[in-house]
Design a protein around this nucleic acid. Structure first.
Length: 276
DNA sequence: CCAAGCACCTGACGGC
DNA sequence: TGCCGTCAGGTGCTTG
């Protein structure tokens, strides 16, 4: 579910509130996607102190004081929430009871998400992280543009490809394409480099703004404190099919591009599949 | 090698 | 009310 800004907001909140907290007890409720058997994983967590919480791509990373790292991938509906201890519910996958009586829960209604534990030094050997592209907010827009434009395929597909650039999902792909005035079906290698650079600048701007507004809440996203984000109120195109473009008033169109529903303004993002 | 399609799951919503 | 189809913020495997 969450894309880069949402995971970033969660990571910042957890790093602030969990750093130095010790896990008193770890409990699992049907950890179907856990890479390691819970019987092996939970003893690695219990008694450990949380050293740091951070993010890479859309993955939430929790460093423990024994050098192990827990990696949470939230996929579509995963949530990591810190709050008062409560009884488990049917969507909980992992519950960590902390030494101040609070509890960290990882729950996931659709069960696409997972938690994995990596021994000291092993995180960077994880296939997922070895294949993932650079962080868009820590990379020069011109370099990002070069990665997007170096091959064919539609722009939307290039933005969603995690090996091209990390952390972009359906919302922020559509929003950055709109801001750059580029059609989602434009052929990436036929768009002028300067326009690709503009796209990457807009991508950075939209990601920064979304982080500043606490992320986007569409259905069930909440940050680590259980609060909804506000950036959904700033969407120009995502989820607005048929509504008027905020710039020119033309009704927004939606179609499947690269397997995902893509909403765009046929006037502001014209470009005859990007041949301009 | 590549893009498309589907699989993985559950729940919400709209139409009939 | 209830059944059915459709859709959902992501990734990864199979297929053509």
């Amino acid at each position: 579910m969450p894309e880069l800004p949402e995971v970033e907001v969660i990571a910042r909140g957890l790093d602030r509130t969990l750093k130095g907290r010790t896990v008193v007890r770890a409990a699992h409720a049907e950890l179907t996607r856990l890479s390691d058997p819970a019987v092996e994983l939970l003893p690695r967590i219990e008694g450990r102190t949380i050293a740091r919480v951070h993010r890479r791509a859309k993955v939430l990373l929790m460093d423990l004081d024994n050098g192990w790292t827990l990696a949470f991938h939230l996929k579509m509906t995963g949530r990591v929430v810190h709050g008062p201890a409560r009884a488990p519910n049917g969507h909980d996958r992992l519950l960590l009871l902390l030494d101040d009586g609070s509890q960290l829960s990882f729950s996931d209604m659709r069960r696409f998400g997972y938690v994995r534990a990596f021994p000291p030094g092993e995180l960077m050997n994880w296939e997922f992280l070895r294949k993932v592209g650079p962080e868009p907010l820590a990379t020069d827009p011109a370099e990002l543009a070069g990665r997007i434009g170096c091959k064919g395929g539609c722009l939307k597909g290039r933005l969603l490809d995690q090996s091209v650039v990390a952390g972009v999902g359906n919302i922020y792909a559509d929003e950055s394409l709109f801001r750059a005035g580029l059609h989602p079906e434009a052929r990436a290698d036929r768009v002028a480099p300067e326009r690709l650079r503009t796209l990457c600048c807009e991508l950075q701007a939209v990601l920064r703004q979304a982080i500043a507004e606490n992320g986007s809440s569409i259905r069930d996203y909440v940050n680590a404190d259980g609060d909804a984000g506000a950036f959904q109120n700033s969407f120009n195109v995502y989820g607005r099919k048929g509504e008027p473009c905020r710039v020119c008033g033309t009704p927004l169109e939606a179609r499947k591009v690269a397997g995902r529903t893509s909403t765009f303004c046929p006037h502001c993002q014209a470009g005859e599949r990007g041949k301009r």
